[in-house]
């Protein structure tokens, strides 16, 4: 038996916002420690890794580890039945090939129960090494989102360069070229507004910009996000959800011929 209740059910809605444009179906790995997911986009250029710790849930019960496959388009439809302030309970019986989602209003005056079929999905997990990155930049997620949106109307690729002076996003297209630099800034009162640059070695990598725009759909999960870069390695873009878990995106760089 698997059962888990989230007081802030809309967390699942927010997570789905970041997932559904990248992958259409995925296996959720249920274990006593929590719920995780790893899935690649169809072109195997980007990978999403989700982790929700068991203690992020109000009641968490997972009697045995199990993978449940879900069509994320269908899951998004089901989630429309949930109000933004509703609690969300997920239930999956080990002997059944479906999942039950229960949405309850905080005042307990509305109760919705939806059953959704599960599916068998062949998925391969990739081993992601614990990298020591050359550069880790933390910045407000709204700022990152704005930058990649703005640049995507100018060009298709983005060159990300980190030096001790800050992080620079550059693109070029028919319109012209654009460079946006964010310098380290920790003068603001709120830590979530800070930009910090943790640099081992300066690094420059080029990526397909549209994936960054997709990753930025997770902006509502966290005020801060981080970009971790190493020479000739996929970039890691992370949105941490406090001590509840995280969503991490990996994107393979463009390689010079």
């Amino acid at each position: 038996m698997f059962e888990a209740k989230l007081i802030q059910g809309n967390l699942i809605k927010k997570i789905m916002e970041g997932l559904k444009d990248l992958v259409t179906e995925a296996n959720f790995d249920l274990s006593p420690g929590g719920v995780s997911l790893q899935a690649m986009d169809s072109s195997h250029v980007a990978l999403v890794a989700l982790m929700l710790r068991g203690d992020a849930f109000e009641n968490y019960r997972c009697d045995r580890p199990r993978s449940i496959g879900m069509n994320l388009v269908n899951l998004s439809k089901v989630l429309k039945c949930a109000g933004n302030d509703d609690t969300m309970t997920l239930k999956a019986d080990d002997t059944q090939n479906n999942i039950t989602l229960v949405f309850e209003s905080q005042a307990e005056d509305k109760y919705a129960e939806v059953q959704m079929e599960l599916m068998d999905i062949d998925s391969e997990h990739l081993g992601i090494p614990d990298n020591t990155y050359d550069a880790i930049v933390k910045m407000p997620s709204a700022q990152f989102s704005q930058i990649v949106k703005d640049l995507s109307s100018i060009g298709d690729t983005v060159t990300v360069s980190v030096t001790k002076d800050g992080i620079t996003f550059s693109t070029s297209g028919d319109v012209g070229t654009a460079h946006i630099t964010c310098k380290q800034n920790t003068s603001m009162e709120k830590e979530a507004d800070h930009t910090t640059v943790n640099l081992e070695h300066p690094v420059t990598l080029t990526f397909a910009l549209r994936y960054f725009v997709t990753f930025a759909k997770s902006t509502s999960l966290s005020h801060q996000m981080s970009i971790s870069l190493s020479k000739e390695l996929p970039v890691m873009v992370e949105y941490a959800m406090g001590d509840m878990g995280h969503i991490r995106f990996y994107l393979a760089p463009k390689i010079d011929d």
């Binding site: 250029v45 990978l47 997990h125 990739l126 080029t206 397909a208 996929p234 393979a252 463009k254 390689i255």
Partner: peptide
């Protein structure tokens, strides 16, 4: 010219 890398070129199977 540059080509798009694939994740399998960087991360191995589990």
């Amino acid at each position: 010219r540059s080509t798009q890398g694939r994740l399998e070129s960087f991360f191995g199977p589990v």
